[in-house]
Design a binder for these strands. Structure first.
Lengths: 213, 213
DNA sequence: GACGTTTGGTACTGAGTAGTACCATAAATA
DNA sequence: TATTTATGGTACTACTCAGTACCAAACGTC
């Protein structure tokens, strides 16, 4: 039952170009505010091709969201928890995570996604499980390792992961999503992450003052 | 320069009816997915009146968002930090806050709001400052009081408030906004709040075990 | 009860746009 | 080179819907 038909390289290129352009336009004007004509005007090609490749407008939207989710997920997977000592590793991870989460593109994408989820419940699952949970799983397994190695008090690694990311994230996401054109200063982010990590460590009975960092 | 003209009670009633209906419809179908005809069909009246009262469709949307924000703010203001001992008070506040934040109406409203903020930057400010910050201010002043009374280690009450609400909220908001038709169990919420409060207390050098609750 | 304001209902305009049909053309494949 | 497939472009249909105009009726005010 395998589809041995070769895929025309033109199709791949067109598809990518359409998704890239649509992503920009959707983020800028929303789904309803973007016409297929706007997409073809910028990406080239014609509406004919869009219907050929995506079925209809909603198909383009789905493809865009899956693409964005994939991008974020892949960044998340690349976030290696380094071999630094615990506190330094957490700070490093927290900073990288925050850089990703506070990027204007991430914010615009989240807004777009949340706006339309009710009409695309399947995408909600995709986003949550492959996007949000990827980072969570990763950090939970890190804590688990630290627990067995005796660097971190034994407990529920999953809960530790939830609390850790909550403290790091704080309300920067909601704040940025609602406050247009506001971006946190990098130095504020840094000091916030440090404060969050230290609070997290103390919350688990560890003294950040005594940790080489 | 005062406007001494009396307001026709009919106008007030119509206005309220339109906002209530529009709120439901906007949350259900989004702004673009709701036609003015749908509103009049359910709220009664005619499009004529809508233009009379709100100017245009965007005017209705603005009124709806202001109304929703006002509702949430008023609930926030009613959240009294009781006279219970610290740990019990935090748990109580946390539970009430979570009840508010995880209500399906709150979630749907947040989605609607975030979807359209880019076109209504002013509303972003309203939401953030009068909605989100109201609770934050309240709890910060609570911590300040506890600090001066010696029940809580001296420090930055504002930061304490940020961390506290971050831990309480965790990722329930994002999770609910993206996962349609998922609602947390009440007992899970309770145990989460307790764990968050205890982690918060330990993070500030207090031992929850030793606190009468 | 007379006057003025607000409202309901209906019908209309005009703009915008998703989706389709069709054919010529360009590119890939064999 | 011949054949197949994907693409571009254009023109068209059918529809939705915001916003307007107008008149008669309902309601509040005095």
């Amino acid at each position: 039952m395998q589809d041995t038909k070769k895929i025309d390289p033109r199709t791949v290129k067109r598809r990518e170009a359409i998704i890239a352009t649509a992503r920009e336009l959707f983020c800028e004007h929303g789904l309803a505010g973007t016409t297929l004509e706007m997409i073809t005007a910028e990406a080239g090609g014609s509406r004919r091709t869009i219907y050929e490749l995506f079925g209809n407008k909603d198909g383009v939207f789905e493809a865009v969201i899956r693409d964005c989710t994939g991008r974020i997920t892949s960044v998340m997977s690349d976030l290696e928890m380094s071999d630094l000592p615990l506190r330094a590793a957490l700070i490093h991870y927290g900073e990288t995570l925050m850089t990703l989460l506070t990027m204007p593109d991430t914010i615009r994408y989240m807004r777009l996604f949340l706006a339309e989820v009710p009409r695309f419940p399947k995408l909600g699952k995709v986003f949550y499980e492959s996007g949000l949970m990827t980072g969570r799983r990763y950090i939970a397994s890190y804590f688990e390792r630290q627990m067995t190695e005796g660097n971190f008090p034994k407990g529920n690694p999953w809960q530790a992961a939830v609390f850790f990311s909550s403290l790091i994230k704080a309300d920067y996401d909601i704040r940025q999503m609602s406050y247009i054109d506001w971006e946190p200063q990098e130095k504020d982010l840094r000091s916030h992450v440090i404060a969050a990590v230290d609070m997290f460590l103390r919350g688990h009975g560890l003294d950040p003052e005594k940790m080489t960092s």
